[in-house]
Design a protein around this nucleic acid. Structure first.
Lengths: 155, 155
DNA sequence: CGCTTGCTTGGAGTGCACTCCAACGTTTTA
DNA sequence: TAAAACGTTGGAGTGCACTCCAAGCAAGCG
């Protein structure tokens, strides 16, 4: 059942994790590029570029050759968005996309890649919390200084 | 006393927050560029570039014109390093450096800048925790799938 | 029918943050 | 003292992730 889940959603995959419902017009399963722009905040340029470099699968086309994105594509873009803001290089995301396209036998590699990413994210959170501590100290300092100045020359 | 703390440490400032002792050869107060490279992990190129763009004050020179960094410079680089990994653009850090150089009357602006940065950092941490949740779900999925595969064909 | 709006392409351009180069001077080590 | 290691400069180059452009096709509307 696990290894089937992927085929079920059209190879775009999002690697078989529950659909993570987000508010989205779920009447149909076909969106123009500008609708996807509205959903993702990416530009149309970027969406086409993602496709060119292999970060997206080849997107379905209308009879006149225009892109028609499906829900699975949006789910994938969701994941890409998340990975992107971890600072993961696009090249690594492309690597992951290739593994997904390659089929079930790449589960191990996908696991390793995600696990490494997870470690990075944890490290990054720790760094940011460090920075936050420094920031808090400085902000407190300036707040105190501001109060001191205010009491020296009454406002 | 608050407004004096800054002048006390040579205008490089680190904005008067307690020196945050880090393990450093505190015999003297003069380091070559390569020593600073070793402490900060930055390259010499980058250190010179930071100076050119005004992210560092003008660094003291030896009688032959070589840079000699002082402890306050290292403290400042510490802060820059922290701000850098929040994703703050270099231009904004330069702006902060200018405020520090401009004197005490910029305390308010410095406060605002740091406060805005703090909000960014908090938002960023939240984003990363979101991403972490997604990553964890996916990793669990692949771990389960791996176990399932392992039990299907005994290793 | 003409107009506006939206989508298509390949390839060139942008902005950021470095990163390197050549040519040369200085300092340290053997 | 000679060689190796380290420092200096301005300016050019790099890599990443977009971002834009021109030229053209297609759909919907008054």
């Amino acid at each position: 059942m696990e290894t089937m889940a992927e085929a079920a959603d059209h190879v775009t995959d999002v690697c078989s994790v529950p659909p993570e419902r987000h508010p989205r017009p779920d009447g149909q399963d076909s969106y123009t590029i500008s609708e996807v722009v509205a959903f993702t905040g990416l530009t149309a340029h970027t969406l086409r570029w993602y496709e060119r470099i292999g970060l997206m699968p080849h997107i379905d086309r209308s009879h006149t050759g225009q892109r028609r994105y499906c829900n699975a594509d949006l789910d994938w873009l969701d994941l890409v968005g998340k990975l992107r803001l971890t600072g993961m290089p696009v090249a690594d995301m492309v690597r992951y996309a290739e593994l997904v396209r390659a089929g079930d036998h790449t589960y191990g590699e996908r696991y390793d890649l995600l696990e490494a990413t997870r470690r990075d994210v944890l490290a990054r959170i720790t760094e940011l919390q460090d920075t936050l501590a420094v920031l808090n100290r400085k902000i407190d300092f300036y707040a105190d200084a501001g109060r001191a100045l205010a009491s020296e020359r009454p406002r």
